[in-house]
Computed example of a mutant assay.
Amino acid sequence: MSIEQVMVEKGISEVLHFTTERGLTGCAGTGLVLSRKALNEEQYLSYIASPVSSERREAQATFNKDEDWLDYINLSISEINTSYFNAAKNWFRGEDRWWCIMAFDSIILTHPKIYFTTTNNIYTSVIRTPGCVGLQAMFVETITRWRGKTVSRNGRQQRLTTCEQAEVLYPNPLDMKFLRSVYVQNPEQAASIHGTLRSFGFLSVNVIICPEKFIGVPNTF
């Protein structure tokens, strides 16, 4: 079976990446979504965009070094990683910024050098695998996050990974030409994003007001 066949079978239509409105401005301005490692090297994005955390565990000396994981972009399939999103909101609580979700064409899942993870990339029992085998592994009946902690499908929709924290690790950079939609929470945000996208020539990207998209579909255990 191919990645394309799995996408059709599961009904996967979009791959998501949440960011602040400043982050989207930076991505639209450069035409690229950049990895955390690249953000530190790109002066323009260092002022306009912002990573969603102040520190990534992947940067620690004791973390798995099979790849330079900081040079991958963290994406999710069909719904956002609610746990990570809630943590990101706490890091920036009280600051003058708001969040949006960029939705990319699922065809990007067929691109080379992608790793699919069964759970959050920082968890000790994560399995990282490229190709169709890796994508299928995100949907098995039971996933182990760390020893003694598992999650099961429990009737989750086909389009959802078994663990809501499963990640698509996309090698830097991701071209914004694959952006199809941006989710926001209210009309004021929609107007702002419309203006940003138009100013950078993204005329065919849909802006969708959908507050429930920011809730995600957490595991029920």
Rank of each mutant, 00 (worst) to 15 (best):
101 I>R: 02
102 M>P: 01
52 V>D: 09
162 T>Y: 01
139 F>Q: 00
71 D>Q: 07
102 M>C: 10
36 R>Y: 15
119 T>I: 05
4 E>M: 09
184 V>Y: 14
95 E>S: 15
191 A>C: 07
39 L>D: 14
147 R>V: 12
89 K>N: 07
150 T>H: 07
86 N>H: 13
205 V>P: 10
219 N>S: 10
122 I>C: 11
195 G>S: 12
27 C>W: 13
104 F>Q: 03
58 E>T: 12
186 N>I: 03
77 I>F: 08
130 P>T: 01
123 Y>S: 08
206 N>P: 08
73 I>K: 05
63 F>K: 11
149 K>M: 04
98 W>P: 12
193 I>L: 06
149 K>Q: 11
15 V>P: 08
153 R>L: 00
97 R>V: 03
216 G>Q: 09
201 G>A: 02
63 F>Y: 15
218 P>K: 01
3 I>H: 04
63 F>Q: 09
187 P>E: 12
33 V>H: 03
105 D>C: 03
133 V>N: 12
170 Y>Q: 03
203 L>K: 13
203 L>Y: 12
162 T>Q: 01
87 A>T: 09
171 P>R: 05
208 I>T: 07
161 T>Y: 00
195 G>L: 03
157 Q>D: 05
117 T>A: 10
167 E>R: 11
187 P>A: 14
51 P>E: 00
128 R>A: 12
122 I>S: 15
85 F>R: 00
198 R>S: 14
203 L>N: 14
90 N>W: 02
79 E>K: 01
154 N>D: 14
83 S>F: 04
116 F>N: 07
23 G>P: 06
102 M>Y: 06
104 F>H: 04
21 E>S: 12
32 L>W: 14
57 R>D: 15
68 D>A: 13
123 Y>E: 04
42 E>D: 15
41 E>W: 10
213 K>D: 01
24 L>K: 03
138 M>I: 02
102 M>H: 05
24 L>W: 12
91 W>T: 15
51 P>D: 00
155 G>S: 10
191 A>Y: 09
14 E>R: 15
138 M>T: 08
84 Y>A: 07
158 Q>E: 13
11 G>A: 04
98 W>I: 04
129 T>S: 07
150 T>A: 05
102 M>S: 07
132 C>R: 09
177 K>D: 08
190 A>S: 13
98 W>Y: 06
3 I>G: 03
202 F>G: 06
219 N>I: 00
182 V>K: 01
120 N>A: 08
5 Q>N: 15
155 G>E: 00
42 E>P: 10
130 P>H: 04
115 Y>I: 05
174 L>H: 08
14 E>K: 15
214 F>D: 01
120 N>H: 10
202 F>P: 06
5 Q>K: 11
